[in-house]
């Protein structure tokens, strides 16, 4: 193994500074006393109080969570189905079309997706609100879920399913008792991805929502267009920390499991 060269150390340091400094500054200045965001005037948590008392933010947060939860659940079901179809259903008419329809929404500019869905909802005469946002988010999130799940299915030893059939399972039982438990981690990461994609989305939600539903990104958007504000800094800090804690916890748990599994495997071979 080569030692880290100076070049590598420097590029990593600068790279991660670039990735994390802006957010760090944001977090630090969310504790700024002053209304003027760029001038430090002492430590204060008063903006957090402002955020938590601001019912418009809280309402929007509630709408966002509702939308994210519903759409990620739907997207997980649909995306998992699509993944199974793509990986396991063999050849059928329309396979290419389906694979195109799964792939395309991921590379589609959000403005186009949003516009087209809005025009659909209008021509169907649908009232726009939480329901239409859920439909829209489900549609693009299911594609991501399907990619995550199918990559797991592809590496999945198909003889496990055959073994289940061989031992007397019906195809449905084989899926429930063998396939699903094994791909569960991928399904869960698909769900998490769908959830955060929905939480994060501004453009598609702006197109597809009506006056009755405002999501948090839409709320933040309308406020940040006017410039930087300490309240938004505090709100952003809360959101960044929630996500960071979630992701770090998940990856630590995952890492611990992997390490334990490796140790046990090594122990088993030694024992033999």
């Amino acid at each position: 193994m080569r030692r880290m060269t100076w070049f590598n150390v420097t590029s990593l340091t600068l790279g991660f500074a670039f990735l994390y400094l802006p957010m760090l500054i944001l977090i630090i200045f969310s504790f700024n006393e002053s209304k003027l965001v760029t001038v430090w005037a002492g430590f204060s948590t008063k903006w957090y109080g402002e955020v938590l008392r601001n019912t418009a933010f809280l309402d929007a947060a509630w709408v966002t969570i509702k939308v994210a939860f519903l759409s990620s659940c739907l997207a997980t079901i649909l995306g998992t189905m699509a993944a199974i179809v793509m990986v396991r259903a063999g050849r059928f008419r329309g396979r290419t079309v389906l694979s195109g329809m799964i792939y395309a929404p991921m590379v589609m500019p959000e403005v186009i997706t949003g516009l087209s869905l809005l025009l659909l909802f209008i021509s169907l005469g649908m009232d726009r609100g939480v329901f239409t946002i859920v439909l829209a988010h489900t549609t693009f999130a299911m594609c991501y879920v399907s990619v995550v799940v199918s990559s797991r299915l592809v590496s999945f030893d198909q003889s496990l399913e055959e073994a289940a059939l061989d031992l007397g399972c019906s195809p449905v039982q084989a899926f429930r008792l063998v396939t699903l438990p094994i791909i569960a981690p991928a399904v869960i990461s698909g769900w998490l991805l769908a959830f955060t994609l929905s939480l994060d989305d501004l453009v598609i939600a702006s197109f597809t929502s009506g006056p009755s539903a405002t999501t948090l990104p839409m709320k933040i958007w309308s406020s940040v267009r006017l410039g930087v504000s300490p309240e938004i800094n505090a709100l952003s800090t809360i959101m960044i920390l929630v996500v960071a804690i979630g992701v770090i916890t998940a990856s630590l748990i995952n890492k611990r499991n992997v390490v334990r599994q490796r140790r046990e495997e090594a122990a088993a071979e030694k024992l033999a």
């Binding site: 500054i25 944001l26 760029t38 933040i220 958007w221 940040v224 410039g227 938004i232 959101m239 960044i240």
Partner: peptide
């Protein structure tokens, strides 16, 4: 994983 909008917003102050 963190909000795209917030990451863009962070640069406004900088």
């Amino acid at each position: 994983w963190t909000s795209f909008l917030i990451r863009v917003y962070a640069w406004m102050g900088i």
